[in-house]
Simulated scan of single mutants.
Amino acid sequence: MTLSTELTQRTADDLEAWRLKHGLTKLEASMAFGITENNWINLTKPDVLAKPLQDAVIVMHLELFNQHPELVPNNKQPDIKEFYTFLGLKDDPKDREMFAKLIGRSTSSACRLLMHDGTTSKAVSMWIQSLVKLNLSPNKTLLLMKKIAKI
């Protein structure tokens, strides 16, 4: 495939700069581009950093990520307290118990997350990020979570 001159000048160094700018690991970056971590490592070896990228879809995907940064995977931990508040839940045992069910965790685990600044697991983080990306109202998000969790 023929790419514009500007795009054919994209290098592995551009890929690494993009990865570092967004605070991604090599595995996370490779997954964002649909390649293995091994391929990412081979693409970004020091001896090839200055060479133009050869895979047109990688170049186009990089350009898409540059033009639409909202598409870049987010590896940052969501603020669990902020999400809890967003859902309109109260600081009471009944709501904390329901929230635990909605995030697939025990009540004691949810309490640790909410009251003692615990760290969410990757699975819970991705679940919350997926829900947030839907851009639903708090009520619709809560209803969706209840529907999926069957509560």
Results as ranks from 00 to 15, higher is better:
V59P: 05
M60Y: 07
M60C: 09
M60H: 08
M60L: 15
M60N: 13
H61Q: 14
H61C: 10
H61T: 15
L62Q: 02
L62E: 03
F65H: 04
N66P: 07
N66S: 13
Q67Y: 07
Q67F: 00
E70M: 07
L71G: 00
V72T: 02
P73I: 04
N74M: 00
N74E: 01
N74Y: 00
N75E: 00
N75K: 02
N75W: 00
K76R: 10
K76Q: 00
Q77R: 03
P78C: 03
D79E: 12
D79L: 01
I80C: 03
I80R: 01
I80F: 04
K81G: 04
K81C: 11
K81E: 07
E82G: 10
F83V: 02
Y84K: 07
Y84N: 01
Y84Q: 01
T85A: 06
T85D: 12
F86H: 03
G88V: 02
G88T: 02
L89F: 14
K90R: 12
K90Q: 10
D92R: 13
P93M: 06
P93T: 08
P93H: 06
P93F: 06
K94D: 13
K94G: 05
K94A: 14
D95T: 05
D95A: 08
R96K: 14
R96W: 07
R96T: 02
E97W: 08
E97K: 15
E97G: 13
M98F: 05
F99A: 11
F99K: 10
F99Q: 10
A100H: 13
K101H: 12
L102M: 03
G104N: 04
G104E: 04
G104S: 02
R105I: 11
S106A: 11
S106V: 07
T107A: 11
T107M: 10
T107H: 07
T107C: 11
S108L: 11
S108K: 13
S109I: 10
S109V: 12
S109T: 15
S109M: 11
A110T: 10
A110V: 12
A110Y: 12
L113R: 08
M115S: 11
M115V: 10
H116R: 15
H116A: 15
H116V: 09
G118P: 13
G118D: 07
T119N: 07
T120P: 14
S121G: 13
K122H: 08
K122G: 07
A123D: 10
A123G: 09
A123K: 15
V124W: 05
S125W: 06
W127Q: 12
I128T: 06
I128W: 06
Q129D: 09
